[in-house]
């Protein structure tokens, strides 16, 4: 049993997600099951409002599970302290940070916070990790810039470098390709693919770029109204999981090319 799970970094069992308000609980989705292994690049696909962000928030413990559980390295999410969780999962969010006067260097170094002392002094090891992250994303020319001087594409890379500097087994990204043009979308996703392979980190991201995602990801989590699918792109296409992902009056899924087409 243990042996089978040795490479499983993130496991979700019978998970129900949603929001708990005072009066009632609002379920967004339920019966979600998947297990992500070390070094896998995983895309999370679903229509707007289906609960992709809620799922990511639940995994990162920003929202509570309504049912079932999330396991990080076989440990239940509830039993992990927030500081230890910060050493296991790093995030790239859609939150706007362009109002800060931080330099790129300072921003990336903030990724070392879970490891630094009470006042945040960077040790030599911390500086090395920061440097490695900057080198891996190839943004050495940006380090002295201020955050508000960056383009959207550059900012996305910087935030990814910050997550990398946090040195976690899992990186979760919420729609990292929105606001980017086609070229930069592909370049960010290619970068994620390379990182997953080279650093053996598990990278999970939500996206609307179905076509690119299908060709780049190892696994896909597909959220639909009544069911959540998990598997390799090929398996999901074979299961015809992509049919009825969207209302079928405008677009349809072409199995041959593995892409959505306009009717």
């Amino acid at each position: 049993m243990k042996k089978k799970n040795i490479n499983t970094v993130l496991e979700v069992k019978n998970l129900a997600i949603g929001y708990q308000t005072k009066k009632k609980e609002i379920r967004v989705a339920e019966k979600i099951n998947f297990a992500l292994k070390q070094g896998e690049l995983v895309g999370l696909i679903g229509a707007n409002g289906i609960g992709k962000s809620t799922l990511l928030k639940t995994i990162t413990n920003a929202e509570k599970c309504l049912e079932g559980d999330v396991y990080i390295n076989n440990e239940s999410l509830n039993s992990i302290t927030s500081i230890n969780l910060a050493k296991e999962i790093s995030v790239v969010l859609t939150d706007n940070i362009s109002h800060t006067n931080l330099s790129v260097q300072e921003l990336i170094a903030l990724g070392r916070q879970p490891y630094t002392n009470w006042i945040g002094t960077l040790t030599e090891a911390d500086k090395l990790k920061t440097k490695e992250a900057i080198a891996a994303i190839q943004i050495t020319d940006l380090v002295d810039k201020k955050c508000y001087e960056l383009s959207d594409g550059q900012l996305q890379k910087v935030m990814l470098a910050r997550a990398l500097a946090q040195d976690t087994a899992i990186i979760v990204l919420d729609e990292p390709t929105t606001h980017l043009d086609l070229y930069h979308k592909v370049s960010v996703l290619k970068l994620l693919q390379k990182l997953a392979k080279e650093t053996q980190k598990t990278i999970l991201f939500s996206t609307h770029e179905i076509n690119v995602t299908l060709s780049l990801c190892d696994k896909i989590i597909l959220m639909k109204e009544n069911q959540t699918y998990f598997g390799t792109p090929k398996e999901l296409i074979a299961q015809q999981a992509f049919d009825k992902l969207f209302p079928d009056d405008l677009v349809f899924f072409d199995e041959l090319s593995g892409a959505f087409k306009i009717k």
């Binding site: 920003a62 927030s82 995030v91 969010l93 940070i97």
Partner: peptide, 11 residues
Amino acid sequence: LLGDNYASSLG
């Protein structure tokens, strides 16, 4: 400085 969500993700 990065916002509440990033801050809590940093522990």
